[in-house]
Amino acid sequence: MTTTTCLDPRMGALLHAYELRGLSESDTVAFETHLLTCDCCFTAVQSFEPYAKLLATDAAIQGEIRGGFADNTSLPLGRRLGRALWPDHVTPLLRPAVLMVVILLLAYPAWRGLNEDPGLFVRATQKITLMPTRSGAVDSFTASRGQDGIIVFGCPGARPDQSCHIVITALDDARMKYDVTVVLDADAVGHILFPARLMRPGAYQLEIDDHNAAVSGEKQVYRFMVHP
């Protein structure tokens, strides 16, 4: 019967280094002393000895190993690529293949975000401010591609927190009409979202429909231009 486990695992760890004749003199003596008592290591060394001798002496085998570290341009492209992406001497987490997977995992959500329905995600907006002026000049804005517009408008004479019905129409396209009810803020200023899909270059009119115009009794109307 032979012992199947090493009596001293600390010494047993030196097994293959001993077989390859790579131990220092003191370690060799220590391991050989261990061999006298440990059946497990002795059996292992005895069974591997023919191969160990060949490994230590055979020039062709040593050349094969040495060749593995020489210029590998003769290897097929797939194997060279594999070696480049998965080199053994690099810490596993830093291997190019692993890094590429990590980068792809991080980049995929960003790529999806760019291609998904714009309504699902927060997007940049542009601000269109409409305030009453004495001159009646028409405000003009540049329509940034794909950006919703936040229209900020003042309502002279309106009460804070009052609700208003707003109608936006395109002056050169009778089909385009966008109406929405908003609640004015504490300063009697309203904010509405003008969707990018409706905002094409051209002239627009914003009409505050049911505004309680205590002063003039007329509807407040703003006109603005959107340039390409």
Binding site: A17, P50, E64, I65, R66, D88
Partner: peptide, 27 residues
Amino acid sequence: LRRKLLGCIRKLVVGNRRYARALNLMF
């Protein structure tokens, strides 16, 4: 023995570079 060992070493050199590197340095 030599033929078998040579065949396995060829596989190991590709499959386990750290072992092959340590062997090379020992040789």
